[in-house]
Design a protein around this nucleic acid. Structure first.
Length: 510
RNA sequence: GCGGGUGUAACUCAAUGGUAGAGUACCUGCCUUCCAAGCAGGCAACGUGGGUUCGAUUCCCAUCACCCGCUCCA
C-alpha cells in the first residue's frame, strides 16, 4: 500500500489535516477532521468500553497534563532525558555528553614555555580509566611520535558536558566512536519534554512540563484511588489523554507526533502474580487489535531482549504493526515491578504501600503497564482498512473499517429526489441518530456515486429508499465490502443497522 | 540533526522570464437512473520571505512543510 494515497485520502475526505496548514503547518502536529475525529473517538471509546466499562477490576482517571515537576524527577524523565548530546559529523554517531570523557595531554610546553602548546587528546565513553585503557595503543603510538620531548606526567580529564573546554582543544577531541578528530559538535541539549512556566512570571521556580506520558499521573494518584476504598488488588487504573514529546525528528504521517494521545493502563497486583498478569495483558491487548480488524499476520508481539529492557523492567513486549513505512510499535506492555511506586514513595515521602487483607501483608504492588497510542492505533486501522478493489470492473477506493470504528455507521439515500423518498430517508436518519447511531443523509448525484463516496469514508452500510418503498414499506441495505443488498422493512431498519454494527448479526446471513 | 527529493485549485497533474491550463471534487440548474464518469453554468492555485530583473510561478538565496535514507525514539 502506498502511504501517499492514504495521506491524500485522509486530507481529501477530512480524516487528518496538517496542523495550522494555512500558516504553512508545523512539524510534528496534526489535526483530525470531521471523519477523523469520529474514527479516533471510536478507537478510544472501544478501548474504554473494553477495558473499563465492561470489566469490574478497572477504574478510570483523568489527571492534569501539567503536574508538579517533582513527578518527572521521580519518574526519571527530567534527569535522564534532557541530557546534552554530542553528534559526530563524520560517522553520524550520537553520544550523551556526560558519558563521554576526554583525556588531554599537554605536549611540548613544559620545557619551552615560549613555544605554542600542543595537545594530544583521547576520547571515549566511560570514565578516565576506561578511556585510557581503550586508547592504550593510540597513546603508545603518540609517545613514540613524541620522541625527544618528555611525555607529560599529568593529564587533564574533561567531561564533554563541561562547556569550559576551549575551542582549540575541543577541535582536537576525537569522536568516541570513529576516532576522527574535529568532527564532533559541542554538546547540545535535547529537551524531550516541553517546558513551560506556571504563572505570569517566567523564572526558575515556575518551570513546569507538559507530561510526556499519562502513566505518571496514575502513579501519583495511586494512593488517592486506593484510599477511596473502591478497589482491591489486583486492579487497574486507566487513562486516556494527550501527551507531549519534543521528538527530534517527527516522521511517517501521524506516527511520530510531538502531541499525541495515549491509552494507558497501570495494572497493580501482588509481586508473585505479576508475571501471570503480564502474560494476560500481553495476550489480551494483542487480541483487542485483531478483534477490531487488524490482520494478525500484520501484527507482531515482540519481546524485548535483555539489552533492550529498561533496567527496572523484568519483561517488556511491543505490539508492532506492519505499517507501509515499516514495522513499528503500536503499544508496549511492560512489567515494571515496583519501580514507579517505589520512586514516588521515595520522592514524595508518602507511604504508597498496600495492605493485603487476605494475606495480612503490606507491600508495594507490582505493576503491568499496557501503554497504547491512540493516534498510532487509529493510523494502523486506517492503513489496514485502505483497500483498492474493483466493483463491476470499475476501480474503487474503500476503507473497510470494523463497524465499531467506522465514523459513519449508515448513510441513507433516496434513490431519486421525489415522490416522498427524501422525506422517508430523512426520517430514517433521524431515527438512527436518536439511537446514537451516527448516520448521514445524501441525495446528491447518481446513486452509484453516493455509494462510492461512502466507501471512501468507510461507512459499512447504506440504506436506500426507492420507488418500491412507497408500495411495500421496505428499503435496501447495501453492504460496503460485498456491495450486496437486501431488503428490510422500514420499521425494523434501525434495529437491523444496530445489530449489524454491534456484530449481533452479520450481513450475509439472513 | 545530517544527506537527497518535492512544493502550482480541495485532490491529481500540466505549461511558462511577460501575472497560469486540464481532469476529478465541490456549488447552481436540468435529467431521474441501484454501484463513480448525461447536459449547461460557476467557484478555485503558483508554501513563505528576500534577491537578480523593466518584469519572477519560472533563476538565485533563505525559511517552512512534506517524502526517502541515516540518526533518534525514556
Amino acid at each position: 500500500m502506498d502511504m501517499d494515497k492514504l495521506v491524500s485520502l485522509c486530507k481529501r475526505r477530512g480524516f487528518i489535516f496538517p496542523s495550522s496548514e494555512i500558516y504553512g503547518g508545523i512539524n510534528g502536529f496534526w489535526d483530525y477532521g470531521p471523519l477523523g475525529v469520529e474514527l479516533k473517538r471510536n478507537v478510544k471509546d472501544a478501548w474504554w468500553h473494553d477495558h473499563i466499562t465492561s470489566r469490574d477490576d478497572m477504574v478510570g482517571l483523568d489527571c492534569s497534563i501539567i503536574m508538579n515537576p517533582k513527578v518527572w524527577e521521580a519518574s526519571g524523565h527530567l534527569g535522564g532525558f534532557s541530557d546534552p548530546m554530542i553528534d559526530c559529523r563524520a560517522c553520524k554517531g550520537r553520544f550523551r555528553a556526560d558519558q563521554a570523557t576526554a583525556v588531554v595531554f599537554a605536549l611540548g610546553s613544559a620545557d619551552d614555555p615560549s613555544s605554542k602548546p600542543r595537545f594530544f587528546v583521547v576520547c571515549g565513553i566511560g570514565d578516565r580509566d576506561d578511556v585510557l585503557k581503550a586508547n592504550e595503543k593510540a597513546i603508545e603510538k603518540a609517545k613514540k611520535a613524541n620522541k625527544g620531548a618528555a611525555w607529560p606526567e599529568t593529564s587533564e580529564t574533561i567531561r564533554l558536558d563541561d562547556a569550559a573546554i576551549a575551542d582549540d582543544r575541543y577541535a582536537l577531541v576525537p569522536c568516541p566512536a570513529c576516532g576522527q578528530a574535529g568532527t564532533i559538535t559541542r554538546p547540545r541539549s535535547f529537551n524531550l519534554m516541553f517546558k513551560t512556566y506556571v504563572g505570569a512570571l517566567e523564572d526558575d521556580s515556575s518551570v513546569a512540563y507538559l507530561r510526556p506520558e499519562t502513566a505518571q499521573g496514575i502513579f501519583a494518584n495511586f494512593k488517592n484511588v486506593v484510599d477511596t476504598g473502591r478497589v482491591k488488588l489486583p486492579f487497574g487504573i486507566a487513562q486516556v489523554g494527550k501527551s507531549f514529546r519534543n521528538e527530534i525528528n517527527p516522521r511517517n504521517f501521524t506516527f511520530r507526533s510531538r502531541e499525541f494521545e495515549q491509552m494507558e493502563i497501570e495494572f497493580f497486583c501482588r509481586p508473585d502474580e505479576a508475571q501471570e498478569w503480564y502474560q494476560y495483558w500481553r495476550d489480551y491487548r494483542f487480541k483487542w487489535y485483531t478483534g477490531l480488524g487488524l490482520r494478525s499476520d500484520r501484527l507482531r508481539l515482540r519481546d524485548h531482549d535483555s539489552a533492550e529492557l529498561a533496567f527496572y523492567s523484568t519483561a517488556t513486549a511491543d505490539i508492532e504493526y506492519a505499517f507501509p513505512f515499516g514495522v513499528s510499535e503500536l503499544e508496549g506492555i511492560a512489567h515494571r515491578g515496583d519501580y514507579d511506586l517505589s520512586r514516588h514513595q521515595q520522592f514524595s515521602g508518602k507511604d504508597l504501600s498496600y495492605f493485603d487483607e487476605e494475606r495480612k501483608e503490606r507491600f508495594i504492588p507490582h505493576v503491568i503497564e499496557p501503554s497504547a497510542g491512540a493516534d498510532r492505533a487509529a493510523l494502523a486501522f486506517l492503513c489496514e482498512a485502505f483497500v483498492e478493489d474493483e466493483v463491476g470492473g470499475e476501480p474503487r477506493t474503500v476503507l473497510k473499517f470494523h463497524p465499531r470504528l467506522a465514523p459513519i455507521k449508515a448513510a441513507v439515500f433516496p434513490l431519486v429526489k421525489r415522490d416522498g423518498m427524501p422525506e422517508i430517508a430523512q426520517k430514517i436518519v433521524a431515527d438512527l441518530k436518536r439511537k446514537k447511531i451516527n448516520a448521514f443523509y445524501d441525495e446528491k448525484g447518481a446513486i452509484g456515486r453516493r455509494y462510492r463516496r461512502q466507501d471512501e469514508a468507510g461507512t459499512p452500510f447504506c440504506v436506500t429508499v426507492d420507488g418500491q418503498t412507497l408500495v411495500d414499506g421496505a428499503v435496501t441495505i447495501r453492504d460496503r465490502d460485498s456491495c450486496e443488498q437486501r431488503r428490510v422493512a422500514v420499521d425494523s431498519i434501525v434495529r437491523a443497522i444496530d445489530d449489524l454494527v454491534e456484530g449481533v448479526e452479520t450481513f450475509s446471513k439472513d
